[in-house]
Design a protein around this nucleic acid. Structure first.
Lengths: 255, 255
DNA sequence: GAGACCGCTTGATCCAGGTCAAGGCCGGCG
DNA sequence: CGCCGGCCTTGACCTGGATCAAGCGGTCTC
């Protein structure tokens, strides 16, 4: 509702606003209407007019590669929706060992917990653009629209399931199985976003992959090399992975 | 409402029922009113009269040690509240490797996910008594009482946090740190139930501990032995652990 | 109360993945 | 355009925890 964006597509899609507001489904408020990930995000739980409350409180922000978005233990003033880019969330041990507990991408919700303090840190992997919501006002919205809460519970359930799968990976899989599982997960997520599912772009470094899988960078590197030598993958530069033999990769993921 | 219990305290607290129902807070319906873990469970979200709906649909059941309560992939017809005993939930790899993703105890809710099929298997560790709710009817209750949904979201949030902590443990901690962390977790849970926090009774076998921590039974056993030799623990039989030096145990848990 | 079974401990050995150490590749900057 | 600094890869070696293999209690059965 507030700021105009210079994006051409935005101007074009705004034209209908000159029409009187007699339409059955009122035009979506601005920042959310033009949101590329609305259908994937919690916002999908709200329809037409209900979006107004949301649109009124959101703000966009951009973070450069490596920027810290939130720190574990700090007050949780804001929630975020990822618009574009990849965010890694992680927890640290006192001596600096790091466990990345998730990579969030477009449409994912950052701050599901609704705690007063952040339960983990979050960092931009590449350039990231986020939709920021003040927590207090979002909580008011939840009280107003129960379907938002339902949607959050569904999301939390799914995350819990994913977390258990990740525990299985961390506790019981070999390095080869871990890397294969990880690549398949990225391929599936790419596919859900309409991208080809046999060409993976690794937004994160080898250190990021290692800290997600409970491995060192050397083991990640060696394991990828071995999968390449086995004819399962092909590399196009260090960060572009092609799945050459998907079936073999799936076999490798489960022992 | 239905069956009378022979418990003396129950009879005593029932006396007010003879009074006319003008009381502001009506007496709780029977099976829930006498529930030892009500304050700890989701049921705490419902007050007085609201409990009637819940009480009408619950049933108690008992499982012997080792019994399977639910199987991963089977239709999720029921949800459960743990009344007494310990339940382990786990996921398997095709070749039988197992990861236990949680131990549930009195007051914990089994079936948070609300999926159509069970996302994991659950098994009684010792003798377990459960409160069983048909899922369909519980979902109707949720629609009726939004505070139930809120409570489930809070629970799911907490589980998510615990899951991330467990990922940190599985991915980045040494065997000694894992075992120390595990024992401290059990001690804290015992304390929340009003038991002494320096005497832990291990309901689960070494195999269970190993499958929870991503270790073998031999490593679990050796690690406990070492903590004992270091004067941090004392064992009274294989399953009764006394924390002798809590500070040292806490140091051991975080490197 | 003898035997068998099951879960736990302990010892000996092995090996997957960690650690340490060199390069190699590539993109940014002067 | 050549140098510099980050990543990434690869090699050599090491080690924490796995694997393999005996026992050792405790307890259940008959």
């Amino acid at each position: 509702m507030l700021m105009a964006t210079p994006h051409a597509a935005t101007r074009a899609s705004r034209a209908p606003l000159v029409a009187p507001r007699r339409a059955a489904e009122p035009a979506l408020p601005d920042p959310c209407r033009t949101c590329a990930v609305r259908a994937l995000s919690v916002c999908a739980a709200l329809k037409g007019a209900e979006m107004a409350g949301l649109a009124g409180i959101v703000g966009r922000s951009q973070y450069p590669a490596g920027a810290t978005i939130m720190m574990e233990g700090d007050p949780a003033d804001h929630l975020f929706n990822i618009i574009e880019g990849t965010v890694q969330i992680y927890r640290l041990l006192p001596d600096g060992r790091r466990q990345i507990t998730g990579f969030l991408m477009g449409g994912d919700f950052l701050g599901l917990a609704l705690n007063d303090t952040n339960p983990y840190s979050a960092e931009a992997v590449g350039t990231v653009s986020l939709c920021r919501l003040p927590r207090r006002r979002f909580e008011q919205l939840i009280d107003q629209f129960p379907q938002l809460e339902r949607r959050m519970l569904v999301d939390a359930s799914n995350e819990l399931f994913a977390a258990q799968e990740q525990m299985l990976l961390l506790g019981r899989k070999t390095a080869r199985e871990k890397v294969a599982t990880f690549l398949l997960m990225l391929a599936r997520r790419a596919a859900r976003r309409g991208k080809p599912d046999d060409e993976i772009v690794l937004a994160m470094s080898r250190a990021g992959i290692g800290d997600y899988l409970g491995l060192t960078i050397e083991t990640v590197s060696r394991t990828i090399t071995r999968l390449r030598r086995d004819g399962i993958l092909a590399l196009h530069g260090a960060n572009r992975v092609e799945i050459v033999d998907r079936e073999a990769l799936e076999d490798a993921a489960e022992g």
